[in-house]
Amino acid sequence: MPTTAQAALERLVVDVPDFPEPGVVFKDITPLLDDHDALTAVVQALAAAGRDQAGEVVVDKVIGMESRGFILAAPVALELGAGFIPVRKAGKLPRATYAVSYALEYGEATLEIHRDAIAPGDRVLLVDDVLATGGTLKATRELVDKCGGVVVGATVLMELAFLPGRETVGDLLVKALTTIRPGS
Rank of each mutant, 00 (worst) to 15 (best):
M1R: 06
T3I: 06
A5W: 09
A8G: 14
L12I: 07
L12K: 05
L12F: 03
V13N: 03
V13E: 02
D15S: 09
D15W: 00
P17Y: 04
P17E: 09
P20Q: 09
E21M: 14
E21G: 13
P22D: 07
P22L: 05
G23C: 06
G23K: 08
G23N: 07
V24T: 15
F26P: 00
F26I: 01
T30E: 01
D34L: 02
D35I: 08
A38N: 10
A41F: 07
V43E: 08
Q44H: 11
L46E: 11
A48Y: 03
A48S: 14
G50H: 06
Q53P: 04
A54Y: 06
E56F: 01
E56R: 04
V57W: 00
D60P: 08
K61C: 12
K61Y: 06
K61M: 13
V62L: 14
G64K: 12
S67C: 12
I71C: 09
L72H: 02
L72Q: 01
A73N: 04
A74I: 08
P75I: 11
P75T: 12
V76G: 12
G83S: 12
I85D: 02
P86L: 08
P86M: 10
K92S: 11
P94D: 09
R95V: 13
A96R: 14
A96I: 09
Y98R: 14
V100E: 06
A103P: 00
L104D: 04
E105F: 01
E105M: 03
Y106E: 03
E108C: 04
A109M: 08
A109N: 12
T110W: 02
I113L: 08
A117P: 02
G121R: 13
D122N: 15
V124S: 09
V127H: 11
D129Y: 11
V130S: 02
L131F: 01
T133M: 04
G135I: 14
L137A: 13
T140M: 01
T140P: 01
T140C: 06
T140V: 10
E142D: 10
E142S: 13
L143W: 01
V144N: 05
C147T: 15
V151D: 02
V152F: 01
G153L: 07
A154D: 08
A154S: 14
A154Y: 05
L157Q: 04
M158W: 00
E159N: 08
L160T: 00
L160Y: 00
L160V: 02
A161G: 00
L163D: 04
P164Y: 05
G165E: 09
G165H: 14
G165R: 13
G170E: 12
L173C: 03
L173I: 06
V174Y: 07
K175D: 03
K175W: 00
L177G: 07
L177C: 06
L177V: 07
T178M: 11
I180C: 06
R181I: 14
P182S: 13
S184Y: 05
S184E: 15
